[in-house]
């Protein structure tokens, strides 16, 4: 990036993020990523079905620890992600400017929004159960308590636009409640996602909680949608035909499906992206002496 008259810059190899490590695609494939103006930026890894499966294994392995962590702890970790992201602001401004062709000032605002969104979601970790749980007054001598629990491993097809803010807006609500996830990054603009993986890797997020794949969304999403060890899928980034194919595949093990919908990433996100991947568990116990 810092090519100038006297020194040749040292470029970064953009790889996948699976189980806390940065492997290349096992397939050895890559694809050229260009800026909004068509300038070559980098060769991103083009993940395969096998990479997607490895990512699911990593997410499943991370699930007991992450879902079993205290909500306070998960909130702290997400806040830490926001801190690390803030520190890399300049790097993301450059990447967003390249990807979207927006002026640096606008890109800076988008990074700030992404940081603020992480802080907002971080605060939900220890509040979601109070808001969506309940003590239910049953007609009998029983204590009856309902509380939200994470669905499990969630696949997320990130939106094509908003390579950072869109991405943060889809993965943060999934993991803050204790799910682990496999994210398929924006196919068009995957580089900020890989850089975000570097942020996650240095933010006390346990390996495997967030796994990030780059590559062809139509190639990867159906495998994740049909994977029997994935419990839910967010189809936000899918065009209609891919969403239909994925929702059909997801029926095989009755995944929770969040269908694509028009979303203004600048607006207040509300709670629906969190509740889409929560289960309600109700526990009964008799009261008596």
């Amino acid at each position: 990036m810092s090519d100038n008259g006297t020194r040749l810059g040292v470029r970064k190899t953009y790889k996948l993020y699976i189980g806390g490590a940065f492997p290349r695609s096992e397939s050895g494939r890559s694809y050229a990523v260009t800026s909004s103006k068509g300038r070559f930026l980098a060769n991103a890894a083009r993940a395969s079905r096998k990479d997607a499966r490895d990512a699911v294994v990593a997410a499943r392995k991370a699930f007991p620890g992450w879902s079993g962590a205290t909500p306070y702890n998960r909130g702290q970790v997400l806040y830490r992600v926001a801190e690390m992201l803030e520190g890399r602001r300049a790097q993301f401004v450059t990447e967003i400017t390249d990807a979207d062709g927006v002026p640096a000032r606008k890109a800076g605002e988008l990074v700030d929004l992404a940081v603020d969104r992480l802080v907002w979601y971080a605060g939900w970790a220890d509040k979601i159960a109070s808001v969506f749980g309940a003590v239910n007054p049953v007609a009998g001598p029983y204590l009856n308590v309902s509380k939200p629990e994470p669905t499990g491993v969630v696949a997320v097809v990130a939106p094509p636009m908003g390579p950072l803010l869109g991405l943060v807006s889809v993965f943060a609500p999934v993991i803050v409640t204790g799910n682990t996830c496999v994210v398929v990054a924006s196919e068009r603009a995957p580089l900020p996602a890989v850089t975000l993986a570097e942020v996650l890797a240095t933010s006390d997020v346990p390996g495997g909680v967030v796994n990030i794949l780059t590559g062809r969304q139509p190639e990867l999403a159906p495998w994740l949608a049909g994977h029997m060890d994935v419990n839910g899928i967010d189809l936000t980034g899918c065009p209609a035909d891919l969403a239909l194919e994925c929702e059909r595949a997801a029926a095989e093990n009755l995944k929770r499906v969040l269908r694509p919908q028009q979303t203004d990433w600048l607006a207040d996100p509300g709670t629906s992206r969190m509740t889409a991947f929560l289960e309600t568990k109700t526990v009964w116990h008799p009261a008596g002496v």
Binding site: Y142, N144, W284
Partner: peptide, 17 residues
């Protein structure tokens, strides 16, 4: 599981999800 009955089983109530 969505419902856990502890020291009871097969209890139902309209207020209970």
């Amino acid at each position: 599981a969505g419902v856990v009955w502890a020291n009871t089983f097969n209890r139902f109530d309209p207020v209970s999800p």
